[in-house]
C-alpha cells in the first residue's frame, strides 16, 4: 500500500468541501473493496476521505411505499433490520448472502452501489425495485445509474446519501454464488409492483447488471414460472471467465430466474 492522507469529515458538506479542495481523492465507505485494492497497489489515492463518521448517511427509514437506506448502512444492519424484513424480505435475504460475516460487518450499501462491481448483489436489487439513488446533488433513477462494469452516473466527488427502494407486492432474490468468493456467478432479483414486473440480473452481464425485458413482459401478464416457458437469454453479452463461460452463464440466468419467480410468487402478496 502506498502512503496516503486520511480525512474524516463528520457531515456530507465537509466531505464535499474536502473532495473539492484535494487532489486524487477517493471516498472510503466500508473499505471491503477499496482497501484490499489499495493494498494490492491497484489503486493509489493520495487522499482518502472516510465517510464513517457521517451520521446522516446511516439508518433505515420506511414509509408506506418506499424503504430508504442510508449509504453508510452496513450489510449486517440491513440483514438484521425488522423494517427491511417487513417491507422487502427479499432485500433481507440479499444482504444475508453478501460475502461473509466480516464483509457484512463493515461493508456498506452505498459503497457497493457506487462501486458497481459486475458481481455485486445490490445493483440487481436497485434495478428490480426501481430504486432512486439519492446523492448530495440530485436523485438518479437506478435505470440511469448503472453504466457498465464499475461505471456509474456519479460525477467526480458526488456522494450517495441514500437509496430509496419501491416496496414491491412480491419479490425474491436468488443467487448462484461462487463458493470461494461468494460473489454472484448469477443473481436474479424479481420484483412485482402494481405497474409491472422487473427482472434484474447481476454477475453475468459483460456490461454489468441488466434487465431482461422479455421476461418482464411475460411476467407482467402472468406472474408464474410458466410465463417464462420458451424464454431464454442469449450467450452474447454474457461475461466469460475461468469459473463460467458465456453459454453456461446464459443458461444459469434462465434457471435462476425461474427459481426467483417461484420464490417471489410464493412470497406473501
Amino acid at each position: 500500500m502506498y502512503a496516503f492522507e486520511y480525512h474524516r469529515p463528520t457531515d456530507v458538506k465537509q466531505a464535499a468541501e474536502l473532495v473539492a479542495q484535494l487532489e486524487e481523492t477517493k471516498f472510503l465507505a466500508g473499505g471491503q473493496t477499496l482497501l484490499p485494492t489499495m493494498k494490492m497497489r491497484l489503486a493509489a489515492p493520495a487522499n482518502l476521505i472516510d465517510l464513517g463518521q457521517v451520521a446522516e448517511l446511516r439508518g433505515i427509514e420506511r414509509s408506506a411505499d418506499t424503504l430508504s437506506i442510508g449509504a453508510m448502512t452496513l450489510h449486517a444492519e440491513v440483514a438484521n433490520s425488522a423494517d427491511v424484513r417487513t417491507a422487502i424480505p427479499a432485500l433481507t435475504e440479499l444482504a444475508e448472502l453478501i460475502g461473509d460475516p466480516h464483509v457484512r460487518n463493515r461493508g456498506t450499501i452505498g459503497g457497493s452501489v457506487a462501486n458497481n462491481d459486475p458481481a455485486a448483489d445490490y445493483p440487481a436489487a436497485c434495478l428490480a425495485l426501481n430504486a432512486a439513488i439519492v446523492t448530495n446533488k440530485r436523485t438518479i433513477a437506478a435505470d440511469d445509474f448503472f453504466q457498465g462494469i464499475f461505471a456509474t452516473a456519479l460525477d467526480e466527488g458526488e456522494i450517495i446519501t441514500k437509496i430509496s427502494f419501491r416496496v414491491p407486492s412480491q419479490a425474491a432474490y436468488v443467487k448462484f454464488r461462487h463458493p470461494a468468493s461468494r460473489y454472484a456467478l448469477v443473481g436474479v432479483f424479481v420484483a412485482k409492483h402494481a405497474d409491472g414486473v422487473r427482472v434484474a440480473v447481476t454477475g453475468s452481464g459483460a456490461n454489468g447488471v441488466f434487465r431482461v425485458p422479455e421476461m418482464e413482459q411475460a411476467l407482467s401478464r402472468n406472474f408464474a414460472v410458466a410465463a417464462l416457458d420458451g424464454i431464454s437469454v442469449p450467450a452474447e453479452g454474457m461475461s466469460s471467465d475461468i469459473h463460467a463461460d458465456a453459454v453456461y452463464r446464459a443458461h444459469l440466468v434462465g434457471v435462476i430466474a425461474r427459481r426467483a419467480v417461484q420464490a417471489a410468487a410464493s412470497s406473501r402478496a
Binding site: Y6, R8, L28, G31, Q32, L35, P36, K39, D50, G52, A76, P101, H102, N105, R106
Partner: peptide
C-alpha cells in the same frame, strides 16, 4: 470490534 468479527488488516485505525 464491538463484538463483531472484522478483518483488522483492512480496518483503519481511525475507523
Amino acid at each position: 470490534l464491538d463484538g463483531h468479527a472484522v478483518r483488522s488488516c483492512v480496518t483503519t485505525i481511525e475507523s
